[in-house]
């Protein structure tokens, strides 16, 4: 697998913690690349407990939401677990407007997510 370009990936025991490198997730090439990196983690590297930390994300488009939804479906299909954390109030509002706060499991912090995975 090529080294990640859009994501920082760290291990915490059996749990994979992912942080986005981009502050704004709007560029279609970047969205495609980060989507593929996410997909590879579950499809090629067999990661089963995943925390997606949004602490660095200031803005994201509906195209980025679409990629996250596709990722969530893949995670669900293979029986893995995914938790989103550290979402700013503005980004959380985007999830809330589109009802995606009901689709994704969301915790305030990485520590909160680690406690339940």
């Amino acid at each position: 697998m090529p080294s990640p370009q859009r994501l920082d990936v760290n291990e915490s025991g059996s749990i994979t913690v992912i942080r986005f490198r981009d502050q704004k997730i709007i560029d279609p090439v970047a969205i495609q690349e980060l989507g593929q990196e996410l997909f590879d983690l579950v499809e090629k590297e067999d990661r089963r407990k995943i925390i997606l930390n949004f602490g660095n994300v200031e803005f994201l488009s509906s195209a980025a939401l679409g990629k996250l939804i596709t990722f969530e479906k893949k995670v669900k299909r293979i029986g893995a677990e995914l938790i989103l954390t550290n979402i700013s109030p503005e980004i959380f509002q985007v999830f809330s407007i589109t009802n995606l706060d009901k689709l994704f499991k969301i915790k305030d912090t990485e520590a909160d997510a680690l406690a339940v995975l």
Binding site: S61, S62, L65, G66, T70, E72, I97
Partner: peptide, 21 residues
């Protein structure tokens, strides 16, 4: 309606809802 429960897992169609909100 992208926000309908049965459409939550459909990847597209959220832009218009965001503009209106």
């Amino acid at each position: 309606d992208c926000c309908a429960p049965e459409r939550l897992e459909v990847p597209g169609g959220r832009g218009l809802a965001l503009i209106k909100a």
